[in-house]
């Protein structure tokens, strides 16, 4: 039977929890026996999405960030969700270098980084409701 597993994590939107969120996701996908590079790629993508939830979604106010992670065979699905500000134009947000907070020295490269480290990135967002980012990646290293 195919290996499956899932987990859900909720934590306070504080920047100190970014590292924590990265460890949780990597400890979970460790079950699939990835390489250290694969872990690093996934952590980078998770970091960008969690940072966005904290600084854009909640604009550093109180809120809960939710991460769901699912493993099916070699496929990893990660969902990062906030109930914050949301976006009116997801396509614009995806554009490389676009940022709504240039004053904070944001690079506008978050989504571009997620897209380049993961196989697929979906963004579902509604203004004043929140944002969900779904990312998918198939591990190549396993089954060797």
């Amino acid at each position: 039977m195919e290996f499956t597993n899932e987990m859900k994590l909720e934590f306070a939107s504080k920047s100190q929890n970014e590292a924590f969120a990265r460890v949780v996701v990597s400890a979970f996908i460790a079950q699939l026996d990835p390489t250290i590079e694969e872990i690093a790629d996934i952590k980078t993508a998770v970091s960008e999405a969690v940072t966005n939830a904290i600084i854009h979604g909640y604009e550093n106010t109180k809120g809960i960030v939710t991460i769901r992670c699912k493993i099916v065979g070699k496929l990893i699905e990660i969902e990062i969700c906030d109930r914050g500000k949301g976006m009116s134009n997801v396509d614009k947000a995806r554009e490389p270098l676009y940022t709504s907070k240039p004053e904070l020295e944001r690079s506008g490269m978050g989504f571009t980084i997620m897209e380049s480290f993961m196989d697929k990135v979906e963004i579902i967002s509604e203004l004043n409701k929140g944002t969900t980012v779904k990312m998918y990646k198939e591990l190549k290293s396993i089954g060797k």
């Binding site: 460890v23 990597s26 460790a30 026996d33 390489t35 872990i39």
Partner: peptide
């Protein structure tokens, strides 16, 4: 080739999950 986490874990005799925690402490 790149070793997998299992291979590193067996060599070091440290849990895979523990290794992921150390990876974070190392780079951050």
């Amino acid at each position: 080739r790149e070793p997998t986490l299992d291979e590193i874990s067996k060599e070091l005799e440290i849990d895979k999950e523990e290794i992921t925690m150390a990876l974070e402490a190392g780079y951050n």
